[in-house]
């Protein structure tokens, strides 16, 4: 792409990542973190970066928030280059790192005041944006941030990342280690922020959160496995998928895996998911019956986790 093309892409997208690569260490001890990845996020989009620990999610976030220089490639945020125009980016993005990074020995209110002041604004000016979230911790506004519970820290960190009304919000694993109820509540908050027009780039190791995003990139070992809307990724799962369960799940799994029609089989909640090499399951089911293994079987609809597993295995 010529220079003009890059400029155009910058204008069109809230985040544009072009062939970004990054390694840590030097000489003999080089650990690659990102292998030349590219993707774009549209303005107002809720974009999910889905992958396990060590996939490169945090490295990418640090590059996009101008805290780390890429080895190769270019990237822009809100039209500004992450290397040359880093100061402009810092003024207009919000960033919530995976680790709690507020001042533990300032109170809730002091932390929020501090971040508002740094960005030349005030709590009053943007209160409507953080109101829903901040109201939940406001009764504790005089408590030290270090003395808050995990859930309250998360809400304060999100409030601080929002108080200057950023155009792009970066959230690095906001739901890791958080229980299922709090995770659901957090995603409700993100939907309300999206309605305010804020572009959100969020990372998570939880595959079931992919469905809450407009589009997702599946990332593993520094490479994008796939990028699309969650429903399109699921539509692309081309093989037939069965769900089987029985009284002895371990024996059932071993028997399924030994059959030639089976491309892959793995535990999936109360069932085993079975990916077939071909569309006809009668060979496998007959084989299980002949071997006296009790089971019930049904067709299964794949979800993002099934897709991730298949993509990971193709990559290997």
């Amino acid at each position: 792409m010529g220079n003009g093309g890059v400029k155009l892409k910058r204008k069109m997208y809230a985040v544009s990542v072009n062939n970004i690569a990054k390694s840590y260490g030097a000489k003999k001890n080089v650990t690659p973190a990102l292998h030349g990845i590219s993707f774009d996020v549209k303005p107002g989009e809720l974009f999910g970066l889905i992958g396990p620990d060590g996939a490169g999610k945090t490295t990418l976030f640090r590059i996009l928030t101008t805290l780390l220089l890429p080895d190769k490639g270019t990237a822009s945020v809100d039209g500004f280059d992450v290397v040359n125009a880093y100061k402009s980016i810092r003024r207009r993005v919000g960033y919530m790192p995976g680790r709690f990074s507020l001042y533990q020995d300032l109170t809730v209110k002091e932390n929020l005041d501090f971040f508002a002041t740094i960005f030349n604004t005030s709590i009053e000016k943007n209160y409507d944006l953080v109101k829903d979230i901040y109201a939940q911790i406001e009764p504790f506004s005089n408590r030290m941030a270090g003395k808050l519970s995990g859930g309250m820290k998360q809400k304060l960190a999100l409030s601080c990342a929002l108080i200057h009304r950023p155009s792009v919000l970066f959230l690095d694993e906001p739901t890791t280690g958080v229980d299922a109820v709090s995770r659901k509540e957090f995603w409700e908050m993100l939907k309300r922020l999206k309605a305010e027009g804020i572009t959100i780039l969020v990372s998570t190791p939880y595959m079931d959160e992919a469905g809450m995003c407009d589009r997702v990139a599946l990332i593993q070992s520094g490479r994008l496995l796939e990028m699309d809307t969650p429903s399109a990724i699921i539509r692309d799962f081309s093989k037939k998928l069965l769900a089987l369960k029985g009284p002895d799940m371990l024996t059932l799994l071993q028997a399924i895996r030994s059959h030639k029609d089976v491309a892959d089989a793995y535990p999936f909640g109360e069932f085993h998911h079975v990916v077939l090499e071909q569309d006809d399951e009668s060979g496998l089911l007959g084989y299980l019956q002949d071997n006296g293994i009790a089971f019930e079987a049904k067709m299964a609809v794949p979800d993002i986790e099934d897709c991730f597993i298949q993509l990971m295995k193709e990559e290997r």
Partner: peptide, 30 residues
């Protein structure tokens, strides 16, 4: 926590094997 979906299942395979050998497993998870 944070482990990829393939390895997460391999991990549970180890748990099943340990339980089959008579080791009791007490586990928390999100």
């Amino acid at each position: 926590g944070g482990v990829d979906p393939v390895t997460r299942r391999e991990f549970w395979q180890l748990i099943y094997e340990a339980a089959a050998e008579g080791i009791t497993v007490f586990v928390t998870t999100h």
